[in-house]
Design a protein around this nucleic acid. Structure first.
Length: 295
DNA sequence: ACCCAGGCGGGCG
DNA sequence: CGCCCGCATGGG
């Protein structure tokens, strides 16, 4: 990948807190120092630190270009979020989400870390997904270093490592019944499928390839396509999205997955994934607040 | 105690 | 095909 010129994200176009907390793969690892306004995440053996303006914090010397290019891609820094809003702001519901979570960006993470975290996400809750991922990193990840050379944490365990890890060591991280999927997916992505090579495929082809991975179905494949490959037309449909779309656009009527995919494609087209993220985070949080009697 | 969580694979009709 | 069921764990 060629070195990208770093584009600074203004405070308004990049709301770090919303982006970090919005339950994307990015939020499943690293850390967020709210007071200092710095996100940390492991990449290429170092702990990358990013400030509120999207600028890399610290001196990465010879890794500088690589780290900056990763930040550029990870936060989609080339993208003017106002353009996105003009495409997805089709109605008051989505506009409510844009208003409440202004500056929440989609992130474009690495294929394997996205695959792993979203396999863990099935039939699970956000808090526990983070917890399981964190434990897997601690047990099976390689050390990553801060700019002063000290060990700053562990990275996402790679496919090969998990392919050779015992089921017991994965299960102990809390993975439960997903343990066999993690092992199987790690083996498949080590020896039978090169995730890096799938990037050149179009969305439909990519999704079909991803669904060959054990433990990856329609929803997780869409999450990987969206947040691991940057395919913005992907529209992951989980229980929240199904419930919210039915409530907001189908008059509360039960609607099949295929029908919802079709609806999203027609309504939001190439930006459906962005619409999904705002519907998910806004709708879910609103719903929870309402049901706890605080809305 | 009981219920549910960013689904999936397998088995059945 | 479509539907339905079980599934490990842990927090509310």
């Amino acid at each position: 990948m060629m070195a990208q010129q770093q584009v600074l994200l203004s405070k308004k176009e990049f709301n770090m807190q919303h982006t970090f907390e919005s339950a994307q793969p990015l939020t499943f690892f690293g850390d967020y120092d709210k007071k200092a306004g710095i996100i940390s995440y492991p990449y290429a053996g170092v702990m990358v630190r990013v400030g509120r303006n999207g600028r890399v914090v610290g001196d990465y010397s010879n890794l500088k270009k690589a780290v900056e290019a990763d930040v550029y891609r990870r936060f989609r820094a080339w993208e003017d979020i106002k353009d996105v809003y003009s495409k997805i702001g089709t109605d008051p519901f989505i506009e409510g989400g844009i208003n409440e979570y202004y500056g929440m960006r989609l992130t474009h993470n690495l294929p394997w870390e996205t695959t792993l975290t979203f396999i863990i996400s099935q039939f699970n809750n956000v808090k526990r997904i983070r917890q399981i991922t964190k434990r897997l990193m601690e047990v099976h990840g390689q050390p990553v270093f801060s700019t002063d050379g000290a060990v700053a944490g562990k990275g996402i365990p790679d496919q090969e490592t998990l392919a050779h890890a015992t089921e017991e060591s994965i299960a102990k991280c809390g993975a439960g019944f997903r343990t066999k999927y993690i092992r199987s997916a790690a083996e498949y992505c080590s020896y039978s499928l090169d995730l890096e090579k799938l990037g050149k495929l179009g969305y439909e082809e990519l999704k079909a390839e991803l669904m060959e991975i054990d433990g990856v179905g329609d929803k997780v494949a869409d999450c990987i396509a969206l947040m691991g490959y940057g395919k913005l037309e992907a529209f992951p449909i989980d229980t929240w999205i199904k419930r919210l779309i039915e409530a907001a656009y189908f008059g509360g009527k039960k609607t099949g997955i295929a029908k919802i995919h079709e609806f999203a494609r027609e309504r939001w087209g190439e930006y459906a994934g962005y619409a999904q993220q705002y519907i998910f985070w806004y709708g879910r949080n609103w719903w929870k607040k309402w049901n706890s009697g605080k809305a």
